[in-house]
């Protein structure tokens, strides 16, 4: 194998797995034929291949089927983000008091999300999409409040990301191909377990990790374990898991404050890049090559 071939292969390895398996050899042949006397890939070819790989990864992640599942299950999954606030509310209720706004600034947002979930299940997608964007904006506002426990530099970024992606999915998808009531039931049960773990196992490390595992497992089961589309949708629904693990990793290696720009890049940029990349690793059922 020539050096040129090896270099092209390295670039082609960045393509989504199913595309690579189906077109990798064919593309290599075209690239070699088009290379002429070149001994190394030109910068235009390199840029073109990188851009092509990125577009195909994004296309797979934002495929209509994936968005349809996220638009149905996302509004339910997001409700798991209310676990901490519900624990807080339970504490105040138990103390025989009513919490002030400063104690639960995100409470209105979760009520909006509950409404969005009901609207999405009822098929009122336009209203659900509008509500989802309002709720996402609400979460971003809560992130800015000085008295809120929500900060950029926390695992909470995952809920904001999931909110935004769900709002996007509700705006883009008509939800026609989404899985039905069993999937909704599975996701709802998952959220109830996570909320239970959040309320009764608050600040318990085992309960926190268990909640993350439950979210991932529930998302996979609800979205569909047997299809690549289901796995991709499950990865999107599990965004808070990725961010929470990332937060723990960052806390372990860096003790101290990080400025907002770096925090944003870490907790919002990295999970998005991860999702785009990992979405392309999921293997699609092999298509019939000749029709």
């Amino acid at each position: 194998m020539s050096e040129l071939e090896k270099r092209y292969q390295r670039l082609l390895s960045l393509y989504p797995r199913d595309h690579r398996e189906q077109h990798g050899d064919e593309m290599l042949g075209v690239l070699i034929a088009d290379a002429g006397d070149r001994t190394a890939p030109g910068w235009r070819d390199t840029a073109d291949l990188l851009w092509g790989a990125f577009r195909l990864h994004v296309r797979r992640l934002l495929a209509a089927d994936v968005l349809a599942i996220v638009s149905l299950l996302g509004p339910i999954a997001v409700l798991a983000g209310a676990a901490t606030s519900l624990h807080e509310l339970a504490w105040w209720v138990q103390a025989g008091s009513v919490p002030r706004f400063e104690q639960l600034p995100d409470a209105p947002v979760w009520f909006v999300w509950l409404g969005v979930a009901i609207l999405a299940m009822a098929g009122k997608r336009r209203a659900a999409a509008i509500g989802a964007w309002v709720a996402t904006a609400g979460l971003i506002v809560v992130l800015q409040l000085p008295f809120a426990g929500w900060q950029w530099f926390t695992d909470k970024a995952g809920w904001v990301l999931l909110s935004a992606v769900t709002a996007f999915a509700l705006s883009m998808s008509d939800g026609r191909k989404a899985r039905g009531w069993p999937a909704i039931g599975t996701m709802a049960a998952t959220v109830l377990v996570i909320v239970g773990l959040g309320v009764f196992g608050h600040r318990d490390e085992i309960a926190e990790y268990a909640a993350l595992a439950v979210l991932f497992a529930g998302a996979v089961l609800a979205a569909g374990i047997r299809s690549a589309t289901g796995w991709r949708a499950a990865l999107v629904l599990s965004t808070p898991v990725a961010t929470a693990l990332l937060a723990r990793l960052v806390h372990a290696v860096h003790d101290g404050p990080i400025n907002d720009t770096v925090s944003t890049l870490i907790f919002f940029g990295a999970p998005l890049v991860f999702l785009v990349a990992i979405g392309g690793l999921v293997r699609l059922p092999r298509r019939t090559s000749v029709s």
Partner: peptide, 30 residues
């Protein structure tokens, strides 16, 4: 270029505007 072509073919085949007609092996390459 190849990247643009195969990105377009990916979309065109999923939209069913283009289909694979046949395959052959030339110089041990598909």
């Amino acid at each position: 270029r190849a990247g643009t072509l195969y990105t377009a073919l990916d979309r065109l085949t999923s939209d069913e505007w283009v289909a694979v007609d046949r395959e052959e092996v030339v110089d041990s390459r598909l």
